[in-house]
Simulated scan of single mutants.
Amino acid sequence: MRQKKQLRRYNKNLGHFLAEGVLRAILISCIIAVIMVATIAMIVIPSLEDLTPFVICALALFVCCLTVCLTGAILFVRTKKITTPITRVNDAITKIASGDFAVRIQNDKKVDDRYQYENELDELTHNLNKMVTELQGMDYMRKDFMSNVSHEVKTPVAAITGFAEILLDGNLSEEDQKEYLTLVYQESIRLSNLCESMLQMSRLDHQEIISAKDSVRIDEQLRKCMILLSEKWQEKNIEFVPELEEVTLVTDKNLMMQVWINLIDNAMKYSEANTKIHITLTKLETEIYIVICDEGIGIPKDKMDKIYNRFYQCEESHKKQGAGLGLAIVKRILDLLHGTIHYDSEQGKGTKVTVVLK
């Protein structure tokens, strides 16, 4: 079967537009000049016998001058179709440079279905609007990020300050002192983990290429994570049900381990006591599938699209058990490793997370 012809990019590119404009201007000017001169000659010169060489030269010179003037006027009108959108783009860029990301360039041109753009300036306008939209989103995320960082850091610092003031006041029993010191220690650990997560997120944001390439046994990493996290959440008595094929992948082992720790830790955090977590690992042709299913509280549907946002936590009751950066880190790592992640969840029944690696 013949492939469909690709959509032409432009209706008419600027080179053709200018060349056509010049030729059209010259042609129209010549026709108008000849008609005007012929009309004037018929009125002023009654017979051909009066056409002396001097008159012919004067008429020719008049035709040339008239053609040049008309051509200039037509080109001036024609080039405004180019200079006007360039001026609009320049004004928009000036506003963007001053920090105004709400500016947009309106494009009222109706382009034929056979073409993507009217010309290069039309594409430039489209791409500029797209760039400003992205910048506006990034600016919002930056402000939101700073607000969240301030809030997250302020909470443990305020708690540590408050507990320290109580300890400095004295008049506490040894048991009370130990309790407040334990709370100070827990809040300091929380603050330390928060700073570490933010630093890792910052490093990942500025990283585009994964240089470390290790031969990693994914099944062994998953088993190691189960053992490590079983100790952390031993009071919940959660049972793991692993179904793991022996799979080796060339990737960054540290980043890969971070993914499994975050995902399994989340599954345990939001699971009830004495439940099961099913973890399966399979390889189909060139793709590796890791599925983690828990029997936890699930995620409400209206919150599913926010789970990868930084500092976002679905359950406020678990806020002291993390900073809400785990899934943002996981998503960024998988993007760098050319993997994907997908969540399916039903509130009150549990959550299923699927990771695909290539």
Results as ranks from 00 to 15, higher is better:
residue 6 Q to A: 08
residue 9 R to N: 02
residue 11 N to Q: 15
residue 13 N to K: 11
residue 14 L to D: 05
residue 14 L to W: 05
residue 24 R to Y: 14
residue 30 C to S: 06
residue 39 T to R: 14
residue 42 M to I: 11
residue 47 S to C: 02
residue 48 L to H: 07
residue 57 C to T: 06
residue 60 A to C: 10
residue 65 C to Y: 04
residue 66 L to Q: 05
residue 69 C to H: 10
residue 76 F to N: 11
residue 76 F to P: 00
residue 83 T to I: 09
residue 84 T to L: 12
residue 88 R to T: 00
residue 91 D to C: 10
residue 95 K to M: 06
residue 101 F to G: 02
residue 107 N to R: 15
residue 115 Y to I: 07
residue 115 Y to C: 06
residue 123 E to L: 11
residue 132 V to Q: 05
residue 132 V to W: 05
residue 143 K to T: 00
residue 148 N to T: 02
residue 151 H to V: 04
residue 151 H to W: 12
residue 154 K to A: 06
residue 174 E to G: 13
residue 184 V to Y: 01
residue 186 Q to T: 04
residue 186 Q to H: 08
residue 194 L to E: 02
residue 202 S to E: 14
residue 206 H to P: 03
residue 207 Q to P: 02
residue 212 A to M: 14
residue 213 K to W: 01
residue 214 D to Q: 08
residue 217 R to G: 00
residue 227 I to E: 13
residue 242 P to W: 09
residue 243 E to V: 12
residue 246 E to D: 15
residue 253 K to P: 00
residue 255 L to Q: 12
residue 256 M to A: 06
residue 276 K to A: 00
residue 276 K to N: 07
residue 278 H to M: 12
residue 286 T to D: 14
residue 292 I to P: 03
residue 304 M to L: 14
residue 305 D to A: 12
residue 314 C to N: 12
residue 347 Q to E: 15
residue 348 G to N: 11
residue 358 K to H: 01
